[in-house]
Amino acid sequence: MRGRRSAIPTAAEEPGRYAVEMRGVHKAFGAVTVLDDVDLAVRRGEFVGLVGPSGAGKSTLLRLVNGMHTVERGSVRTLGTDPATCSRRGLRALRTKVGFAFQQFGLVGRLSAMENVLMGALATLRWPRYGVMSYPRALRVAALENLDRVGMADQRFQRCDTLSGGQQQRVAVARTLMQGPQLILADEPVASLDPASSALVLDILRRISREDDISVLCSLHQVELALANADRIVALRAGRVVLDEAADTLTADRLRTVYGTGDGTDG
């Protein structure tokens, strides 16, 4: 297992080392500027915690990386590709390499954990599938392995709408792993979870990042969780990067100043 990274990416590093590159990014919705002259580089295999108050631009930044939004100025490269210049087919291909974990989980409640995880592999199949046994055996084995990695193998046949929030998010992570992603974008993945479940989910993401060399860009409000799990912290405020530093050189008190509230949460 690799150790925690402590250095900030520099211009001297070769571009192939980056999972995400943003240079001079400006994004506005109408007259409202959401991101202003943002530079960000995420190494391959690095876990970056993206923090800042509500309205700072975190969710928009993640959606630019995934090609859901496009920039007015600047450039974005995701796994070496500019999402804005991709054809529709090219963008679909890029997104198969990019997992997206949402606060709302995005599971089909009436289906089992196993079938929800298998749905993560639908992009590799030619026809839609209905029921666990309609998937190839190799995918069923992989789905069970991924459920085991997140501690949910014993609940594989349980309907997702009967699982706790933390269990559902772990199933969602296992589903993302079915894509074989090189990059995972997580938008407040633990915002609706209790503290114990939040710590468990982030510990799983951190472990997977290190074991599989997957880059993770994860937006969070909880300062302590960001410091405990990220290799690096990038803080946004009013659409600008106001801090970019290795997590092991930061203190919780210093990071809380980004929020202006003294408590490290929305103000």
Rank of each mutant, 00 (worst) to 15 (best):
G106C: 05
Q103W: 05
F157V: 05
M119Q: 06
G151M: 08
S87I: 13
G67K: 02
R156Y: 13
M119A: 06
G55Q: 11
A142F: 06
R126T: 15
S75G: 15
T162W: 05
V150K: 02
D148M: 12
A84F: 09
D82S: 15
S87Y: 07
Q158W: 01
N66T: 09
W127G: 05
R77L: 05
L61Q: 07
D154T: 11
T70E: 07
G99H: 15
A138S: 14
R137P: 02
G109K: 04
R73F: 14
L62N: 02
Q155V: 11
G165H: 08
R129W: 06
A56M: 07
R110W: 01
R170V: 15
A113R: 02
D161H: 08
Q168E: 02
V150Q: 01
C160H: 00
Q104C: 00
S54L: 11
A138K: 12
M133S: 14
G166W: 08
L122H: 07
G80I: 10
T70K: 13
T162N: 04
G90S: 08
G80R: 08
Q103T: 05
A153H: 06
M119P: 00
Q168N: 03
M119K: 01
G74K: 02
S112E: 06
T162A: 10
R140T: 11
V98P: 02
T124S: 15
M119D: 01
T96H: 14
T162P: 00
S87H: 11
S112F: 08
T162G: 09
Y130Q: 08
L79P: 06
T60E: 11
G80N: 08
V65P: 13
P128F: 13
H69K: 03
G151P: 07
G90L: 10
Q158E: 12
L61P: 12
L147M: 12
L61A: 04
G99M: 14
A121P: 14
S134H: 07
L163C: 02
T70I: 09
V108M: 04
L139G: 07
Y130P: 00
M152R: 05
Q158F: 00
L122P: 00
L125R: 03
Q104E: 11
V98Y: 01
L163K: 01
R156W: 14
A123T: 11
L94P: 12
L118K: 00
E115C: 04
T162D: 03
A101R: 04
K58T: 14
S59I: 13
G131A: 04
L107C: 04
C160R: 00
F157A: 14
T60H: 13
N116Q: 10
L111D: 03
G120I: 06
L122Q: 03
G90R: 08
V171E: 00
K58V: 13
E145I: 10
V141S: 12
G80M: 10
A121N: 09
F102R: 01
K58Q: 12
V171A: 00
M133R: 11
G151S: 04
R89D: 00
V71Y: 01
S87K: 12
L107G: 04
R77P: 10
R63C: 06
A93N: 11
T60R: 09
R95F: 13
V76N: 02
R89A: 01
G57P: 04
L118H: 02
R126S: 15
G80Y: 11
T85W: 13
G106T: 03
G166T: 08
W127V: 14
C86K: 07
G90H: 10
R156M: 13
L118C: 01
R156L: 10
E72V: 04
G166F: 09
L139M: 13
Q158A: 12
